[in-house]
Design a protein around this nucleic acid. Sequence first.
DNA 1: TTTTATATAGCAAAAATTTGCTATTCTAAT
DNA 2: ATTAGAATAGCAAATTTTTGCTATATAAAA
Lengths: 208, 208
Amino acid sequence: MKYSANAIILDDHGLFADAFSMLLERYKLFDLVKSFDNKEDFFTFLSVFGQKNIIIFLDYYLGEDTGLMLLSEIGRMNRKAKVIFLTSALSPFLIQTLYSNNPDGILSKSCSVETVKQCIEDISAGKTFVDPLFKDLLHSNQSLNIKFTSREIEILNHFANGETIAQTAENMFLSSHTIVAHRRKMMAKADCQSITQLLTFAKQHGLL
Amino acid sequence: MKYSANAIILDDHGLFADAFSMLLERYKLFDLVKSFDNKEDFFTFLSVFGQKNIIIFLDYYLGEDTGLMLLSEIGRMNRKAKVIFLTSALSPFLIQTLYSNNPDGILSKSCSVETVKQCIEDISAGKTFVDPLFKDLLHSNQSLNIKFTSREIEILNHFANGETIAQTAENMFLSSHTIVAHRRKMMAKADCQSITQLLTFAKQHGLL
DNA sequence: TTTTATATAGCAAAAATTTGCTATTCTAAT
DNA sequence: ATTAGAATAGCAAATTTTTGCTATATAAAA
């Protein structure tokens, strides 16, 4: 089935962009398929292309930028453009964040070709699409209950830079007991038994 | 031009694996192209396939594992297998580490189709191939004069998953002394005073 | 206004890490 | 054949982290 729309892919991994565009072409899902590995060329094309029907496959991690940062500018350029986020991360925090910004679709890079087809079909019909892989994450009760305070995040960053408790205390002009207290609070919230686990947790949830 | 060899792709992003295998097929570069998104299926296939000519496209980031960690096992299974690392990171240290573990090729995921072809051609002729994008990095003065072994990387991954020394020792069926030794070796190489620093170092240099 | 959450600080014991040593086995390279 | 590097393992001491407690001041929220 072919949809009377055009597809644009933006992914900083040129090889993925090329390969994925080949896949879309192979299944004849669009009138036109264009791929870009940098936002400059992407936006140039978008501005020239005008107000046509477009489905944009937008990678989340784009080196310097994130796909999320480009969403509003895309909207300004083409009111009718549909945007599908592509990401490989399975973090509830990230998915929740993406979801709350109301894209037309969210696809995992680990998804099957069938899922891609379903996604395109749904979006062409005016619906939104969330990869089944992500649906569980969105409705998981674990995803929302935790939040860190700004002070905690600040201290977390010192640890991420390799500082010990004593060093962080010195650098922040605080007692090491205070650092220990904050650290233990975060570890309790995130259910971690070590600073190593906490840092991994933070990285996985996009906090670092 | 078709090479009398078979290609296997291992990438935890199934979509990339599928798309890339389609690209290889499209250009008729191999007799057979197989793609996998998990190491279990990959190794099962490899063991059944026997001692034939194989070129393996191996993603570095594989979720739980890294491609580097699988290198020795691949060698045990098929002496004749050629391995090409695929990575998107531009970290000199990562490339240096990959290079020092003697793969047959290193390709950037941002490379062009032409580069892929050139790589396959060189490797089929018994040469090794390094993506031009990476050659500069290897000879750049900013590249560190250190490298991690595949065993070290494996152990590093356990720490990144939040395991303690004792837990890693148990999971790897090793003495905790051995883990401590590897850990200390990495910390010495990377000039780190704690596992936190080491993990940060590893992340900054694209190893994790 | 009372409660709740946050930031701060402390003590002491238990657990884990880090460091300074040595040493054996195996493999790859010269 | 020898050397060099890598993986393995050990001990002991010094240091750091983690945990189980308590406690106060302040700010925000109900």
